[in-house]
Design a protein around this nucleic acid. Structure first.
Length: 463
DNA sequence: GGGCAATTCAG
DNA sequence: TGAATTGCC
């Protein structure tokens, strides 16, 4: 038998350093601590593993698969511009990384920190591969979950405002440059193919860092200053549309906060929204069971009506503001934030159906769907979350008149109502009999007065 | 400085 | 209504 030294035998030092930059939810070359550090090695392998565990989970969907495909293709182009490429593998993450480690004498693995159980296991598995593991600042939040606790004790904040006061005082790291040239060992040479995972929404936005950075640039230049005034105006759609980019890390939240600044009222309001994201992440990190269980139960005995749920899901409730929003979700894989609030409240408070069903439908369609934000916002609306006013009900008509006064938003997604005057568009049942019958639009499935009474009665009975 | 009541204020 | 902070001992 020939003498053969294991590569990682004690005392052995490879003459060259070879790193893996393992991309996770940071699919960008700018302001990426992982890539920045990994690129300092002699050779660097930018790697993304499409983990079977994620692809087969109930939290993956066709829209996120399509968006992710865009992200990987764009990342590959950016890396090729720098002399590198993106290596994409599919399978069990640790196995795939191990294969690359063995095949290319990898000496160091760089990855971003993350608090989810999945991510902690990933770290353990990477630790066992023999190369030095460098876990960098997490990229998902501006302030990492569980790094702030109330001064009076407790492992997390349960109310937003005191959290935000502390959040604002936290130091943020500086924004990192994209690496210049990369030296990647001879490896695969093939651009990542598209991932097929069902049919995406027809008007799904494109993904990728290039698109994300353009959106960010436009947003900080012309959008954010009006955010305070316009963020709830449904028809204007004057929100950033950056949520899927924040989810996949094609835009860095640290860079975004830096560039948005706090000069205008709009920038301050927007910063607050980004802090809500971190707030929800720290709630779910501390109470992971809140993804499926009431954070604070109100002992609701939710109705179980498939008929009502399906009418809501398919945009056939007879309330135009609700139905338009559900059509937007179907068409774009995205929904205006104010509309999310309205439809969620309609499901939980008006129809009195379980928030989990609604949350799961969002998970199934939203391109930006983030578990912590989705579940905790649903719980907030349902009154089982961190809202300190658990009985608050959003009246869909009041919301519609206030945030879509002339019905432009409703008409955009419900062409059947295109010719209605503003005073009828949100309540087509007020039209004269014949005109109403001529509309291809259903009658309301529920009476708001009765629904409010039902909710109040259910809540008072159970306290 | 720990523990408690009072106070403040919340998407 | 209840969480967080503040003020008091």
């Amino acid at each position: 038998m020939m003498t053969w030294l294991p590569r990682r035998a004690a005392g052995y030092r490879s003459p060259v350093t070879t790193s893996i930059a393992l991309f996770t939810r940071d699919l960008r070359v700018h302001d990426n601590p992982v890539l920045h550090a990994a690129a300092a090695a002699d050779r660097c392998i930018p790697l993304f593993v499409l983990d079977d565990a994620i692809v087969s989970s109930a939290f993956f969907n066709a829209n996120r698969a399509a968006f992710l495909s865009d992200c990987l293709a764009d990342l590959d182009r950016s890396l090729r511009d720098r002399g590198g490429e993106l290596v994409v593998r599919r399978g069990k993450l640790a196995d795939e990384v191990a294969r690359v480690v063995r095949a290319h004498d990898v000496t160091e693995i760089h990855v971003a920190a993350d608090v989810s159980r999945y991510a902690r296991r990933r770290e353990e598995a990477l630790e066992a591969l023999g190369a030095d593991l460098h876990v960098h600042d997490q990229s998902i939040n501006a302030v990492p979950p569980l790094s702030l606790t109330p001064s009076g004790g407790g492992d997390h904040f349960a109310v937003f405002t005191p959290y935000f006061r502390r959040w604002e005082t936290m130091h943020r790291r500086g924004v990192l440059r994209a690496p210049g040239r990369l030296t990647v060992p001879e490896i695969s040479g093939e651009a990542p193919g598209r991932l097929h995972h069902g049919t995406p929404s027809p008007e799904l936005a494109a993904g990728g860092e290039t698109v994300g950075r353009e959106l960010m640039a436009d947003w900080v230049r012309t959008g954010v200053e009006d955010y305070a005034d316009l963020h709830d105006a449904l028809a204007d759609d004057a929100t950033s549309h950056l949520s899927p980019h924040l989810h996949f890390g094609t835009v860095s939240v640290t860079e975004l906060l830096d560039r948005a600044g706090t000069a205008s009222e709009g920038a301050q309001a927007y910063t607050r929204q980004l802090a809500w994201r971190d707030f929800h992440h720290q709630v779910l990190a501390a109470r992971p069971e809140s993804a499926t269980k009431d954070y604070r139960t109100r002992n609701d005995r939710w109705r179980r009506s498939d008929r009502d749920f399906e009418a809501w899901r398919d945009g056939r409730t007879g309330y135009p503001i609700v139905d338009a929003a559900m059509r937007q979700l179907d068409r774009e894989g995205w929904m205006h934030n104010r509309a999310r609030l309205i439809v969620a409240s309609f499901l939980c408070k008006t129809l009195y159906l379980d928030w989990r069903r609604g949350a799961q439908h969002f998970v199934d369609l939203l391109v930006d769907c983030d578990l912590a934000n989705n579940q905790m916002n649903w719980q907030w609306v349902a009154g089982t979350g961190t809202d300190t006013r658990p009985n608050r009900v959003h009246n869909p008509l009041a919301q519609a008149r206030r945030y879509d006064p002339d019905g432009t938003y409703v008409k955009r997604y419900l062409p059947a109502l295109a010719d209605l005057a503003p005073q009828h568009v949100h309540e087509p049942w007020t039209l004269p009999e014949e005109e109403r019958k001529a509309l291809d639009y259903p009658a309301p499935i529920v009476d708001l007065r009765e629904a409010a009474d039902r909710f109040a009665a259910a809540r008072s009975r159970k306290r």
